[in-house]
Nucleic acid binder design. Structure first.
Lengths: 119, 119
DNA sequence: ATTTCACTTCGTTATATAACGAAATATATA
DNA sequence: TATATATTTCGTTATATAACGAAGTGAAAT
């Protein structure tokens, strides 16, 4: 199997996981750090970190260091036109269900200081 | 995890396999039976049959019985608008590589009687 | 300097998927 | 009716992926 055809599947593999779709939808509402996403998805930190690295490697999201936090956000200028296309029409590809709607509601309330630290 | 978010991933899971992408590309050139696809992909018949059932279940392709053969073809009227969208812009999503180009060349030459039967 | 905190990486385990050959099914031919 | 052919289904095995906790990394606070 040549390299290019696998490269073609990479985009779709990235979109094949429910939690990654949820993350994409969440980040379209608001930039978030790892612990905020972890809190909403209710997964281990390491699991979320892995999902984020996959989304980043494929080009869907970018990261920005902010002190001890790492903020993840939708990639504003993807080099792959397919990624741009998916991102600008995400609601077409991923229809909202109750879970995604409740994710959005949680994002409004989520507070980095409360969720992530013990101050 | 609710049912709908998994339904959302189903489309992408189907597109996540190199051999299924090759099959889709092939069927856009020409309707083919299982043994013709098997010959080109160089896989076991049962494996190809399984890939075809996944593509059919997701709505990308349809089948048509023709005596002892089963012809598979691109679904001309998918009920899911996302499937229609992918199918009508397949070259945008899946760029041709050498493997896909050579698949197309093989399709021109492939002959059901020669490939599939021992007459 | 040391500790704390947010995150990543590593190693392991459980589950999902792809592949195969054998058996079952369905259709056509002898 | 019996046999051959095309395909599907089943059972198994190998590989890929997702999840976890523990260990490691780097920045901020003490």
């Amino acid at each position: 199997m040549t390299a290019l055809i696998k490269e073609n599947t990479k985009l779709f593999k990235t979109l094949s996981d429910p939690n990654r779709l949820r993350i994409l939808k969440m980040l379209q509402t608001k930039s978030l750090c790892v612990c905020e996403i972890t809190d909403i998805l209710n997964l281990a930190t390491s699991t979320v970190s892995k999902h984020l690295s996959i989304l980043r490697d494929t080009g869907f999201i970018i990261e920005e260091k902010d002190g001890k936090w790492v903020n993840y956000m939708i990639n504003p200028r993807p080099s792959d036109k397919r990624i741009s296309s998916i991102l600008s029409t995400l609601d077409f590809w991923i229809s909202d269900d109750n879970l995604i709607i409740s994710d959005k509601q949680k994002i409004q309330k989520v507070d980095r200081i409360t969720v992530c630290s013990k101050f």
